[in-house]
Design a protein around this nucleic acid. Sequence first.
DNA 1: AAATCGTCTGGAAAGTTAACAGACAGGAGC
DNA 2: GCTCCTGTCTGTTAACTTTCCAGACGATTT
Lengths: 403, 403
Amino acid sequence: MRAGSPRLLREINDRAAIEALLRNGPLTRSELEGLIGLSKPATAQLLTRLETADTVVRNGLRGGGRGPRAQLWSVNGALAHIAAVDLTPETVDIAIADISGAVLTEHKAPMPAKHGVLEAFVSAVGKACGQAGLHSDQLLHVVVGCPGAVNPANGELAYAPHLPGWSGFDMPGRLREQLATSVSVENDVNLVALEEMVAGRATEVSDFVVIWPADLVGAAVVINGVLLRGASGGAGEIDGLMIPDRAAADTDTDRSGGTYGELLSNASICKLARAHGLAARNGHGAVRKALAAGPAGGEFMVDLAKRIATGVASVVAVLDPELILLSGDIAQAGGTTLNDLVAAELRQLVVPRTPLQLALVTGKPVRSGALHSALAVARETVFGLPAATTAPFRGPVVAGSPR
Amino acid sequence: MRAGSPRLLREINDRAAIEALLRNGPLTRSELEGLIGLSKPATAQLLTRLETADTVVRNGLRGGGRGPRAQLWSVNGALAHIAAVDLTPETVDIAIADISGAVLTEHKAPMPAKHGVLEAFVSAVGKACGQAGLHSDQLLHVVVGCPGAVNPANGELAYAPHLPGWSGFDMPGRLREQLATSVSVENDVNLVALEEMVAGRATEVSDFVVIWPADLVGAAVVINGVLLRGASGGAGEIDGLMIPDRAAADTDTDRSGGTYGELLSNASICKLARAHGLAARNGHGAVRKALAAGPAGGEFMVDLAKRIATGVASVVAVLDPELILLSGDIAQAGGTTLNDLVAAELRQLVVPRTPLQLALVTGKPVRSGALHSALAVARETVFGLPAATTAPFRGPVVAGSPR
DNA sequence: AAATCGTCTGGAAAGTTAACAGACAGGAGC
DNA sequence: GCTCCTGTCTGTTAACTTTCCAGACGATTT
């Protein structure tokens, strides 16, 4: 901890004002006073200073009350732009926004199966930038959300068998070269968690976990309002967790050493469904049929809930979070029925009575999360706002990320 | 985030000075200047102000060099006192320290098995206080380290079957009444982790886990340099983790659903030892015999390592920490041999190559950890120092962070 | 007439730079 | 071996800068 001169006060107050303007839209001077706690002259001086520095712009007048119309102020969005990308095996979905958070344009494009993914990606980003009247090197930062996790040591994408074209090289590094701007790659479930924290079910909690039971089980861990990435980017990669199969129906799983992912793979869930007399082609299909099938389906649901809950129990035992959110196809298909079954099983396995809820997935959670993450990085770079304060999460830390 | 007037600067700078004095022992004015970055007159004024407020005291002179002998300053320890207690089923071990961290006195006393634990505890603390010339109500804070975890909702001690006399009531509340001072109860493994972070193997990392394989398996989780307690105080209570028994020797465990604690209980380890032709009465005894027995013992050690590693793997999958420390009787008895076997097994179970080390347990880790914890609380209440900053491992907190 | 906006003036609080007086160790000169 | 000078360090004082606050004033709108 270091001491500071009056100059430090300036910085603190400027940042407080910028943060208030970003968070609460256009404000009059007197509203800003109330929010940051400065006096009238100090606030006026601050605004004119930020205006001459181009940090802040006039944004219309507010009338209606007595007295003269008050000047409205907001942060100059044109200071910097960012891109948020949702990358799946089939498509890229891109949004370009300015630093105020306003989305300028959107663009969606298909992705090739394996070869030429990089080229397709770069051209899609180029097109989106074009629509916004920019070049990709004018972007301050790009956040890409995708399955898997980037190892901070070498930049390689791991845990992502569904994105075969992207493995074996320094993914953020290559993208940075091609786009001529700073890029970070973030796990998609992490971004969903971010979005749940900003605008979903987790706005009121600081420690929670999003669990994504699917063909590749993933989880996002948020501790103290900060996304946990892990030393090698592998936090929340619970697919490989060794857990026993506690399902009542015997499906020939190796009861002494299956992984969580194996027990929740499409193949394995279909097998379990068959053992209960249900035919399905994938996990969420099986869940949907079971829900429709009535009592017979109920037993399958209980067995599935047992499998899901056993993994959730491991997370609860280690972290004891305030809240667990279930997300993904299977959880969505199972709805509150499955959610409640898992909650009941969980209660038998661990002491803490951690509430379990369905994620509040509306719209495009991965892309929105990427947008928030990119904004946090941009605001830290441009305004020196600590990301943890701007939004209750940290931007991704990647080699070559802006300082 | 709020703005601040010059008064805020005073607070920031005072706290910076106090923190520097606490951390770096007695300092001359010019040394303090260098540490906190203030000018000579400002530092001198600051010191005289803190001296008249009794916050800081003169502490001898430093001579030797050219020029006049420089005045040495340090924080006034007599401002407040704290107690640190290591509570086990058999004994209490108490240390009384002042707010500068200097230990004034120590006291150790036996504990009754079940009845009258509260009375014995209070009288031991009273005796320790007496030795230091204090009454217990003059203590600013008391931290008690013990097995188990206190549920923040009702104050009851859970996960602590070895402390039967302490369950079923609001433990910190009752102690607070009896001692007439503020009391907090902390899990013993958590305090070991704190101590490892302050002065052990984990000084350079911010995310690590201490695992305590024993009759009651515990773990402490540190994320971002902060101890994770969990929503109901149960973070790290991995005793109930459901894991498969991967040991090669068959000991009739329920392979489809044992808990981590069952697999590492004294009884279970002895059974495993017997299956390998070793007789022992408890876990660390078995390990010691196995180490002495040569090759035959080696197979037992591998099986034990498999059991330990399976639970460690769950922690790694969820958190991907920078470091895992093994502590407790069994880990100590097994030494680097067991540590390396567990590390090898772990590498086969999870992707991250998390380093595994033995905790650097010297002296009284639980009591020292409790002392650091109590000091952090005292320094926060007396000086307004954020506890996370007091500890030497956190990055600086941004000035003007929300109050 | 009342309330509100924006600006201006004077003053308080905090820190910085610069200069000065005094103290002490070390070496030069005798 | 003794004396005295010099350089360096401590601690204090004074003048100036930066930043914010309280209050007053004119202008504007309902």
